[in-house]
Design a protein around this nucleic acid. Sequence first.
DNA 1: ATATGTGAATAGGTTCACAGCC
DNA 2: GGCTGTGAACCTATTCACATAT
Lengths: 165, 165
Amino acid sequence: MKPTQLRKDLTYFGQFGTRGLGYDVEQLAAMITGLLGTRRLQPVILVGVGNLGSALLRYRGFEQEGFEIVAAFDLNADPRQARQFKPPVHPMEKLPEVVRERGVRMAILAVPGTAAQEVANTLLACGIAGILNFAPIVLQVPEEVTVNNVNLAIELENLSYFIQD
Amino acid sequence: MKPTQLRKDLTYFGQFGTRGLGYDVEQLAAMITGLLGTRRLQPVILVGVGNLGSALLRYRGFEQEGFEIVAAFDLNADPRQARQFKPPVHPMEKLPEVVRERGVRMAILAVPGTAAQEVANTLLACGIAGILNFAPIVLQVPEEVTVNNVNLAIELENLSYFIQD
DNA sequence: ATATGTGAATAGGTTCACAGCC
DNA sequence: GGCTGTGAACCTATTCACATAT
């Protein structure tokens, strides 16, 4: 990425530097934070506490960027042990309640592909606005809901293509 | 994605369907497999067996797409226990040997950001051609090496931007 | 009829060249 | 001199319209 492109991109949102001097980094960062909608800590839930889900739960990189996983959900969660973890791992039934009470708008979906659409439907019914989907399927969602797919196998395939002699 | 685009994309690699009839799915799949360089099982190594690394090790989606994680490496691996896991988890010192012996060309990098560049340098020295990087830093690599970045925090930020009312 | 293949048209994104400001 | 802002030029990707084949 060249300097020109970065400047061009910024102009789509306004004018943030001073010519001849440069950008005030703090001010610029604050502007971007506002654009991204991460001005205050955003509550996120995680569904599916398998291998990948557990790793995401323990991953501390989200908080740093303004996200807080307020709760996780899994079919096999024990209601009595739910609060032993931090964030707590609840059974699926509790999902609508938590979403409502905490005003959650984003969910991380880390369940097997076979369960993904069904879980997504539950999320949609609760009014979730954005899904970060790790399941290797294309989710069917209404237009106003945003889905961001992360497919690890595809990332490897992509690499594979580019390293061919 | 519209049908036209898929057809257009395919034409960049040749002509695979028969007009009026359609595509022979099996033949088309074989062609794509060849293009991606996944005709035979590709050996991959994983470096960093923390939260994310362990999840990736247990993830079965890679094999299905033609990749085999032949070994993992971690600073804290116990040499005596190395072979107890499948794939085995070796200490870092063993990395060059395994890469050479198995003809490994791709590596998954799941170490903390602070260690990522150093580990990447080791990988480069062994002649690795592609890195799937989960560390939240921009790796410095020579031009002929391909890096594919997966940054989970950025994926969430991306979502956040699009779900703003 | 139905589906692919493709040149032309369109849209979108990147780079350039230079104007404006410290 | 050094850095940002921006219209124009350029390049790339997507869509359209239709030719081509079964």
